[in-house]
Design a protein around this nucleic acid. Structure first.
Lengths: 195, 195
DNA sequence: TAAATATGAACGAACGATCGTTCACTATTT
DNA sequence: AAATAGTGAACGATCGTTCGTTCATATTTA
């Protein structure tokens, strides 16, 4: 029985949504528990009926992010065409991370993970999954002789993620998605992998 | 008279050093003004004789970081050999950002800059200078026909910085500098610029 | 030179606000 | 009646900042 999937109390989801809004607006540490409760239209005490504390709310958000990145992993594992898969991943992940909520929440979780083991656990595990998937895609490409061989594939994988996510953070102010800069990023990375 | 360079009160420097220590240990928002004062061996009130407030301390730190990156800009502007200059920049910046204090302070300043205009000013100006220098180096390389031509050079420049800095953040826990991963990063980037 | 004055570094108590959390309690549902 | 959901006052701690004060040194005046 790998699936527990016990239904989440709707109020809990409302609180999480409110927390996301607050964290995006003011950041994790600048947001008070009262802010979250008020934003959710819920009493302060009731928030503690659904979460152990403020930290628990952030951990829950981090877990949601994990689920959302599952799609990208599916793209990358055991692809028939590694080049096409990587191309698609870069493009779709760039779009995903272009949404301010994803980019900003990512930084918020990352910085908290630096010093908070509980958050680091959730965040790090997901990051590892994504890197492993990227590496396996690269490996398959190398085996099929469509990618150049590199000693340190995980460094290349991390590089792609850093690049895409850094771009997301930088484009926070502008709401429009700059397709051309995504394309040039894509071609640069793929060019580096050429034989 | 472009140079003011009025000497900074030694106590002010002590306080900044203490603040850096605290910000690294606990992060900006988790650090209290009392923590800084105590770490500096200075009274709470005296701290306010040297700084307008907590925010002012961080801004001062950001300005110091700006001065430290001046060296990298010199490497990149008007190079005789753009390829060698870029090679050297990547290597040296990777080393620089491998020091936890630089990597961590960078994130701390970056995340604060997202919502704090005063910090964003200092940080953003410096980032622009660095990117401009990188772009000018790339441009010269293209003109000299040692680099492949790209439409969006600043995107490539940002990509390099994101990559190098992301690597710095990720290697926070391990104190040793992984030379080989720097080299593979270097060769990947330069490979992407090959004609 | 001696006295008077101005300077500014250093101090820590105190302020009001806010922090995360707890808890006694009421209302609703099963 | 038992369990669950919801409330907001209250707690102790800590936040960034302000303030009145002390005191050693430097500058000015007599």
């Amino acid at each position: 029985m790998p699936e527990k999937e016990k239904p989440v109390h709707p109020r809990k989801i409302e609180i999480v949504d409110a927390a996301v809004t607050c964290f995006l607006e003011r950041g994790y540490h600048q947001t008070g528990v009262r802010d979250i409760a008020k934003q959710a239209g819920v009493s302060l005490g009731n928030l503690y009926n659904h979460f152990k504390g403020k930290e628990d709310v952030l951990a829950f958000i981090a877990e949601i992010e994990v689920k959302e990145t599952g799609h990208f992993i599916e793209l990358l594992v055991e692809p028939d065409d590694p080049l096409a898969a990587l191309e698609q991943f870069i493009y779709e992940y760039a779009i995903y991370i272009s949404h301010p909520e994803n980019a900003l929440l990512g930084v918020e979780i990352l910085t908290e993970a630096i010093r908070n083991p509980m958050i680091s656990d959730v965040f790090g595990k997901n990051r590892t999954r994504l890197v492993d998937a990227l590496v396996s895609c690269l490996n398959k490409g190398i085996k099929l002789k469509v990618f150049a061989s590199y000693d340190d594939l995980s460094t290349i994988a991390f590089m792609m993620l850093d690049t895409l996510e850094g771009r997301g953070i930088r484009n926070l102010e502008q709401s429009t998605i700059d397709e051309t800069s995504i394309r040039s990023l894509q071609s640069f990375i793929l060019n580096g992998l050429k034989l």
